[in-house]
Design a protein around this nucleic acid. Structure first.
Length: 895
DNA sequence: TTGTGGGCTACTGGT
DNA sequence: TAGCCCACAA
């Protein structure tokens, strides 16, 4: 396209005093801001102030090198990061910051493809398929060729295709290599006889791509690959972007894949010979934080940066401004076990700080229970707020126990990730309508909504139309416009089909009239299609929550409309398609007073004063499927490193001796990462689990322990034995009583035996107070019962539970509604777990009363704060100090 | 065509 | 345990 129009001179000259931009930076940071050259790699360790350096560097380019804002392209990993960077830049340089491209890879590519995509066959309104859409399409493709989707899983095929795309291998080259005789788009062909493998995948890739093209749709990986293709194919377009972007910045460079790497090169014009000097490229990253290999990230991009980019310079930032030295020592200890990394050691001048706190629970319920109690204690006694705390786990499925425990304790929380708002069926249905309105060629979505709500159009109707469309080379939508030509069409089918077509035509016409008001289009869809009505009429209680979700979708659209000057339906859909989990997080400094729950992956780039790293067991973290493979295990280790370095002041590490999975309970041994942390750094509140002891004693029951280690002041006994043999081979238990998976010890640790399990201490220390003792989990009610009772409405991906009662929206429309009233029924099943340790009420105690505490001994009540369940009593224990204790939890008695 | 119930399989991670 | 798919009945 022409590039004369958008390269207008920019009136604002950005003036900034150099000193102002270097203020408060350490020498390495300062050098990184100022370095002027073709290519710069900033090796930014965790918490080393990288965003600060990056934004200052951009401001530096603008003010000192006279760059124009429109010449800047800054790529971040998430929309949230982009938004934050834009905000910070706006503070630094003012509103001209808006002219810069600051976005994710995917958003930038959408923008390029929307503008210039016609050269690769994409018209403006193209649809972006998410994973679910892609799977649906792949299923259709497989069925067409007589392949059983159970035998050849669409997900596996898509993974293979995704790998290809990340490597920039298009379907033609795959076909040529593995199935030269196959031609996509031959309805009669049969592939059912082929084994899953390269040949079959190549065929499916070709057909999948043909269908995407016909539907004017792309999947996530296409966004990158097709942009690269575009730049390679069309010299004019390429020249436009070479000319436009003079400064390219890439954050989280360690997580780029090959396609993204090439994209940067293409945009920078590194391999072009159009007479334009290549753009200056700055990348920021930390190879120790590379955690996305599973989706194609290639750590070599960052390791080989100096080879790849001529005259590249590397500046390392190793001073950490986030965490205490103890936390950094733990992080360094864990990551140093990885082979072949460039040695790097984070340091801080912030001092040692508190020890890391460890806790080994008997099972996942108790783990959650203990964590939540400790969180409450932190807020009551140590002055933290709920918003200071994050619980991080390896897999989303682990969140449930913590949700339950938090609800029982009445602690507000927000859950990031999990089932996303936009993946919920009803929301997806409504969006499918919108997609079809924007792009009627989108067969997958058109077929999805054909019978939503129910209009008597089943498989038969869909199949008849689809077969005709296929044979006539039409889209599904076009075929619906020629019902009378379709063979086998009966009036019985034709009538509802025609009604559907009429409905859609009405919606499309309507939408065209108000394209800049997506919220009105959403309203029309909800109203005219009858999806809301169907849900309203439903006797199923859950459906009422779904109605709320749809209402929420409408407010998301309204919000988008307000925040976007040139809002369009396509723009809204794009927003919806490209949101990331972490995009739901509140912005920096916006402490919203709830505990945050998320996966370790999502936590990247964030920090919290208090971090609980939970589920540190072999098979949980590191994940079972990563344990057999050296490189995957190395990635798990980096993930642990990421997790540890999120913590600013306090770090907790916990594990469970037993964990329920698939409704079964499995015993677990401590994670090797736990053992990598030097013992001296961890203050174990409880080190051994009942399972450990059962193993040790030879499986006879020993339920004398069970209690969790206490609340304010644990019996921090020295009597706990050390786990396994430190420093040497890890100990592992035999395959346990269940013998099932046989997974323990599979990596050659010595099997559990008396020798590797040193037991010197007494057994008496656990539960010595004997107040609360549990069996190993059996007394807890089933999780599902609890869940359904409070989950009557909806969970969003950012589900949130306030101490109040009702719902909660958010920037991206992740919603949830949870009700406190219902909560208590959930708690009843394991009420014992949060049962008070005494029967004292705020009225029982007054200043001056004498009490005894299990640990601190005799004390005098100083003050009583009546907050109902959460009442706090302040007691002076003389030499033991003055403590604020949670009344219901404190092991105290009135004298 | 829609609804129901039993059986199967899955829990990495996310743009 | 829980969601999904399929077979079967109305």
């Amino acid at each position: 396209m022409s590039f004369a129009t958008s390269q207008m001179p920019e009136p604002e000259v950005i003036r900034r005093d150099p000193q102002e931009l270097l203020d408060g930076l350490n020498p390495q940071q300062s050098e990184a801001v100022q370095y002027q050259g073709q290519a710069l790699l900033i090796g930014a360790g965790a918490g080393s102030g990288k965003t600060r350096v990056l934004t200052r560097r951009i401001a530096w380019a603008l003010s000192q090198w006279r760059a124009w804002p429109s010449q800047i392209l800054a790529i971040t990993f998430t929309n949230k990061a982009a938004r934050e960077m834009k905000d910070r830049l706006e503070t630094l340089i003012g509103p001209v910051a808006q002219r810069m491209w600051v976005s994710t890879f995917h958003s930038a590519c959408v923008r390029i493809l929307r503008r210039d995509g016609e050269a690769v066959g994409l018209t403006r309104g193209f649809t972006i398929y998410d994973q679910a859409d892609s799977q649906r399409l792949m299923r259709t493709v497989e069925q067409q060729y007589g392949i059983d989707p159970k035998r050849v899983k669409p997900r596996d095929v898509l993974t293979a295709i995704s790998d290809c795309k990340n490597e920039l291998k298009d379907w033609r080259s795959q076909l040529k290599e593995f199935a030269p005789d196959f031609r996509p788009g031959q309805p009669g062909a049969r592939l059912g006889h082929l084994e899953a493998g390269e040949q079959l995948y190549a065929c499916l890739y070709a057909e999948y791509q043909r269908r995407l093209q016909a539907a004017n749709a792309v999947d996530f990986d296409d966004l990158i690959m097709r942009t690269v293709q575009l730049l390679r194919l069309d010299p004019q377009v390429a020249a436009y972007y070479h000319h436009k972007f003079r400064y390219i910045f890439v954050d989280e460079y360690q997580d780029t894949n090959h396609a993204q790497y090439v994209l940067i090169r293409e945009l920078a014009g590194l391999d072009a010979d159009d007479g334009e000097r290549p753009a200056a490229v700055t990348v920021v990253g930390d190879s120790d934080q590379s955690i996305y290999a599973f989706r194609g990230a290639d750590i070599h991009n960052i390791l080989d940066f100096e080879k790849d980019f001529p005259e590249a310079k590397t500046i390392m930032l190793e001073q950490n401004y986030r965490s205490t030295q103890t936390i950094l020592d733990a992080a360094n200890a864990v990551i140093s076990k990885n082979q072949g990394r460039r040695p790097k050691k984070l340091w801080t001048d912030a001092g040692k700080g508190s020890p890391i706190v460890g806790y080994a629970a008997d099972n996942d319920y108790e783990e959650a229970q203990w964590v939540v109690q400790e969180i409450v204690r932190l807020t009551v006694e140590d002055g933290f707020t709920y918003g200071d705390v994050a619980i991080m786990y390896r897999a989303n499925a682990q969140s449930r126990r913590f949700e339950e425990a938090l609800i029982n304790a009445g602690v507000p929380y927000q859950l990031i990730g999990g089932t996303r708002f936009y993946e919920r069926k009803e929301v997806k249905d409504a969006i499918a309508y919108l997609q079809c309105i924007a792009n009627p060629a989108d067969d997958t979505n058109m077929r999805r909504i054909l019978n939503v709500p129910k209009r008597g159009l089943g498989e038969r109707a869909e199949g008849t139309v689809a077969a005709y469309a296929e044979s006539a080379g039409l889209t599904f939508w076009d075929a619906l416009g020629r019902l009378q030509e379709i063979p086998g069409m009966t009036t019985r089918l034709a009538r509802p089909l025609q009604a559907f077509r009429d409905l859609m035509e009405e919606l499309i016409a309507d939408a065209q009239a108000k394209d800049s008001n997506p919220s009105e289009i959403v309203a029309a869809v909800l109203d005219k299609t009858g999806i809301v009505e169907e849900l309203r009429k439903s006797p199923d209680e859950q459906d009422q929550g779904r109605v709320e979700n749809l209402a929420q979708l409408q407010s998301v659209a309204a919000e988008y409309e307000q925040n976007t000057p040139d809002s369009t339906l396509a723009g809204f859909l794009e927003n919806v398609a490209l949101v990331a989990d972490s995009d739901q997080l509140p912005d920096e400094g916006e402490n919203n007073g709830s505990v945050t729950l998320m996966t370790l992956h999502t936590s990247k780039g964030l920090e919290y004063p208090v971090v609980f790293l939970v589920g540190l067991e072999e098979g949980t973290f590191p994940h079972q499927r990563a344990m057999e493979n050296v490189s995957e295990l190395a990635e798990e280790r980096r993930l642990a490193y990421v997790g540890i370095t999120r913590a600013r002041k306090r770090l907790y590490v916990t594990r469970a001796g037993e964990r329920s999975q698939w409704g079964r309970s499995e015993s677990k041994t401590p994670s090797e990462f736990l053992e990598d942390i030097p013992d001296a750094l961890i203050d174990w509140k409880r080190k051994e689990t009942a399972v450990d002891r059962r193993m040790m004693l030879g499986d006879d029951d020993s339920d004398e322990f069970g209690g969790f280690g206490g609340f304010a002041g644990f019996d921090d006994s020295d009597g706990y034995s050390t786990f396994g043999s430190r420093g040497g081979s890890r100990s592992s238990y035999g395959s346990g009583s269940r013998g099932g998976s046989g997974s323990y010890g599979s990596r050659g640790g010595s099997s559990y035996g008396s020798s590797s399990y040193g037991s010197r201490g007494g057994s008496s220390s656990y539960g010595s107070r004997g107040r609360s003792s549990y069996g190993s989990g059996s007394s807890y009610g089933s999780g599902s019962r609890g869940r359904s009772s409070y989950g009557s409405s909806s969970y969003g991906s950012r589900s949130s539970y306030g101490s109040g009662s009702s719902s909660y929206g958010s920037r991206n429309g992740k919603v949830s509604t949870r009700r406190v009233a219902a909560t208590h029924s959930a708690s009843s099943s394991h009420a014992s777990s949060s049962a008070p340790r005494n029967s004292l009420t705020p009225q029982d105690l007054a200043a001056g009363d004498l009490v005894t505490h299990d640990k601190y001994g005799l004390g005098t009540v100083v003050a009583m704060e009546d907050k109902g369940e959460n009442s706090v009593v302040t007691i002076d224990f003389g030499d033991g100090g003055v403590k604020r204790l949670m009344l219901r939890m404190a092991p105290i008695e009135k004298l």
